[in-house]
Amino acid sequence: MDLTSYAEWAVRLVNDPDPPPGLRGLREELIAVFASADEDTLVARLNALLVRYPVRPQLSGHDGQRWHLHLAEDSAACAVMGLAAVVAELGADRLGRCQDARCSRAFLDTSSNRSRRYCSARCASRANVAAYRARRSNGQ
């Protein structure tokens, strides 16, 4: 069962400037997870969220597929479980914040070499253009 798609829910919630009222508290807690200075703090915050938002898996068979697991429809629990699964399977360093000075959006680094630094191609391009212009103005 790939839980990365559930972790993407958490990323979308963190990046949503106006989340649904019932998810605003969770958004702030997830922002703290992404802002954690070290892995132990990140894991402690995720473990606390897992206690508050328990996951209820269910067997499901639809669209001609065999029986498989789905997490319950509670989006808060699914988001927390997805992040926990990414940290367990890939490592805490896969949770990132955009390195563009004008952006602080969260992202999941699913690259094979753990090299992602920006939330989107737009931010990466903007940062690269700014660096190029800075080099060019310095006569390089």
Rank of each mutant, 00 (worst) to 15 (best):
G82D: 01
V55R: 11
A77N: 04
A48V: 01
R94E: 15
Y132V: 09
C119T: 14
V129Q: 10
L71P: 06
D2R: 11
T4C: 01
S112D: 08
G139N: 08
L13V: 01
D40S: 13
S120V: 10
E8K: 09
S112G: 06
S125R: 07
R133L: 15
D74V: 01
M1W: 07
A48G: 05
L26H: 06
R122W: 11
G61P: 02
A79I: 00
M81P: 00
V11A: 10
A76N: 05
D63H: 05
L26D: 05
G139P: 01
R66E: 14
A77K: 09
A85P: 00
L59G: 02
P54E: 08
D63S: 04
G91P: 00
A32K: 02
A121S: 12
G61R: 13
A72N: 14
R66K: 08
R117I: 05
A106W: 15
V33I: 11
M81D: 00
Y118K: 04
R24L: 04
S112Y: 08
Q99G: 03
E73L: 06
M81G: 00
V129C: 01
S120M: 12
D109L: 12
V55G: 02
R117P: 10
T110Y: 02
S75T: 00
V86N: 11
A88L: 14
S104K: 08
R105C: 08
W67H: 05
N138A: 15
D63A: 06
D74F: 10
L23F: 06
D109S: 06
V129L: 05
R135K: 15
S111M: 11
